[in-house]
Every structure is written in structure tokens, then in C-alpha cells.
């Protein structure tokens, strides 16, 4: 198995896979979204606590799927925790692929971009609460 820049499973990615950033639920979440990749069934749910100052105060994810889909979710939340919603919206698909690192084929890009897609929807998806 080759170990160069084309290597999909670089050590820092495996680190995120085995020791993910904020995997779990967020009881204080104000916003959340979940989606899956119909091709393979990978699923990601992201829960966010957005502050009145427009910042992502906290972010957690849950999900099931391949190393790429799960590690990329961890990397994305670690990157955007504490940033503003505006900054999150400006974080593009290309930024996500760049953050991940290794070059991905179009099919595997979908795995990497699942959490990014879910996050882009989550910031617009307030949780309905019964008062």
C-alpha cells in the first residue's frame, strides 16, 4: 500500500477517525441537520449551538460510514467550532477537500463532502422546541 501524498489514509486522518473531535450529541443544540449518501448509505448528523453573536459556540456530530466521511466530519467541526456562521457559509466545498488533504476521486469526494453539506444545511435548520 503506497504511503505518499496520494495515500488516502494518512496518519492524521486515521487519528481523526479513531479519536474524533466532538463525536456525540449536543444537549444545548439550537440547530441540527442529518443526511445520508444514497450511493453508499453513509450518514452524518450535525448539531450546533449558535449564539446570538452569530458564532458557532459548539458543534457535535454523529454518524456511520467510511473513514473518509467520519474523519472529514471531525476535521470540519474542529475547524469551524468558535467561528461565525458567516465564516461557515463561506467555507466552500473546495476548502473542505483541501482541509481533508489527499486527492479524492469524484465518488470519494462525496464521502468527504457529506458533513460539509450537512453543516451548510444545519446552520439554516433551527430545532423546533415545544415551549
Amino acid at each position: 500500500m503506497p504511503l505518499d501524498e496520494e495515500e488516502l489514509y494518512q496518519e492524521h486522518i486515521l487519528d481523526h477517525y479513531e479519536d474524533p473531535f466532538h463525536r456525540g450529541n449536543l444537549p444545548t443544540a439550537t440547530h441540527a441537520h442529518e443526511d445520508n449518501n444514497p450511493l453508499c448509505g453513509d450518514v452524518i448528523r450535525i448539531e450546533l449551538e449558535l449564539g446570538p453573536d452569530g458564532k458557532i459556540r459548539d458543534a457535535y456530530f454523529t454518524g456511520q460510514g467510511c473513514v473518509i466521511s467520519q474523519a472529514s466530519a471531525s476535521m470540519l467541526l474542529e475547524k469551524l467550532q468558535g467561528k461565525t456562521v458567516e465564516e461557515a457559509k463561506q467555507f466552500s466545498a473546495n476548502d473542505m477537500l483541501e482541509l481533508y488533504g489527499p486527492r479524492l476521486t469524484p465518488n470519494r469526494q462525496k464521502c468527504c463532502l457529506l458533513s460539509w453539506k450537512v453543516l451548510q444545511s444545519a446552520v439554516h435548520s433551527p430545532i423546533a422546541r415545544n415551549v
Binding site: M1, Y17, L39, C40, G41, G65, V67, I68, R108, C111
Partner: peptide, 21 residues
């Protein structure tokens, strides 16, 4: 790991399998 990763790594060795549902 997940079946997708298994398929990816098998492919690197020239082995074509299917992964998913």
C-alpha cells in the same frame, strides 16, 4: 474499517469488489 475503505484498499491491490448496501 468500513466496507468502502475495504473496497478502496482492495482496489489499490488490483482487486475489484463492491461495497455499500
Amino acid at each position: 474499517p468500513h466496507p468502502h475503505d475495504i473496497a478502496q484498499l482492495l482496489d489499490e491491490e488490483g482487486i475489484a469488489v463492491r461495497a455499500g448496501h
